[in-house]
Simulated assay, not measured.
Amino acid sequence: MMEKVKVGIVGLGRLGRRHAENLAFRIPNCELLAVCSVNAEEVEQVQHDWNIKYGYTDFDRMLENKELDAIFISSPSGFHCEQIQKALNAGFHVFCEKPLGLYLEEALLVQEVVRKHKDKVFMIGFMRRYDKSYAYAKKKIEEGKIGEPILIRCYSLDPAKAIRGFMQFAKSNYSGGLFLDMAIHDLDLARWYLGAEAKQVWAVGGAYAHPEFRELNDAETGAVLVKFENDKIGIFVAGRNCAHGYHIETEIIGTKGTLRIGTIPEKNMVTVFDENGAIKECSDGFLERFEQAYLSEAEEFISCIRENRQPKVTVEDGVISTALGYACKKSFETGELVNVESLMNTVASS
């Protein structure tokens, strides 16, 4: 068994820096040996503050470092497809944040490359599967606690106070839009919990408080109705303008019961009593709400490398969830009902 897995990370933005910190300080048998970013100041600061041996502003140069065992990709979504291919072809194990790419064609290309490198660990960052509450709900479903799961309802709402920072990201053309960037986590959970694949998708949405979303051909708030196999149902709401904070909520309805996760997006177990009443403060954002899950998924990636096994989250999960997100995007843009299987076949044959 490998003693220490030596990792290089690309992308040092908000999430990338959290991943880098976990790899550097919180995961046994892991060494963050190299960091890479197009921002030279970010690289220099992290190297200096954390005593990281290698720093790069060129991803290809980092791949020439033979001391590394694995590459952790947390760059903007538009770079994922190319960087996954290059890293696998250079002989590295690869972790990549969602999505696999901004287009279904890219996701299918990644799948092909991953399948050619079966000796390498590949993992996609669907971190909610590693959140303790979400994992507990999955266990309850497998135990038959709610009977056969037949409907899932998901809310993914970003805090309104983060809208200005997000608009800069959206204008870079690397977000992929509301459904591929945000709802993809819920779409993955739906497949995981329902044990079924999507058949048809209808998506609606608009720009309400922030008309600039319309100029980007994107939705500020959107909703999706999905028909899954065996007539199972998915209802998804995603938005960028949540006044009370970061609200991630999931409900799974079964033939014998219901599970709800995150109904009140509590920051912690504290209730504040003041002139405003009894207040339960809400999470500020994804880094706070899923702090444990981001660490757990990185721990799993390192364990898979050391134990020579593949993670339960596969490249196929990434492809199918991307196809579903892309179907939502197409339905929103055209106003039409989209058949997911036909979309997949059309893209695969083109």
Rank of each mutant, 00 (worst) to 15 (best):
R14H: 09
A209N: 14
A137M: 15
G277K: 00
M2S: 13
L194Y: 04
K329R: 13
A219F: 03
I73K: 07
L33A: 10
E82S: 15
H48D: 09
K4C: 07
H247E: 13
G195T: 04
V110D: 04
I52E: 04
K199P: 02
E41K: 00
E106N: 13
G285A: 05
V224H: 06
E21N: 07
A162Q: 02
V338A: 00
R115G: 07
E42V: 00
K312E: 15
E249Y: 14
Y155A: 08
K161N: 08
E31D: 01
Q83L: 14
F126I: 02
S331N: 03
P99M: 06
R309A: 07
T263L: 06
E249M: 12
P28W: 11
D186I: 01
I252N: 12
L68H: 03
F290D: 15
V347E: 00
A327P: 06
K145I: 07
T221P: 04
L295M: 13
D131M: 08
Y174C: 10
Y294G: 09
W50E: 11
E220D: 05
G234D: 02
Y294C: 05
Y103P: 01
C328D: 04
V110A: 13
F286L: 10
M182R: 08
A87P: 08
N230D: 15
I184P: 03
E307V: 00
Y208D: 02
S77I: 07
N217L: 09
N241G: 09
H185N: 14
G147P: 11
K116A: 15
N339Q: 04
Q310P: 14
S75P: 10
Y103E: 15
F166V: 04
L100H: 02
S296Q: 09
G285W: 07
C242H: 13
G101S: 03
R191Q: 14
E229T: 06
Q45N: 09
C96I: 01
D131R: 13
I152V: 05
G11M: 06
L225H: 09
I163W: 06
A207T: 05
F213M: 04
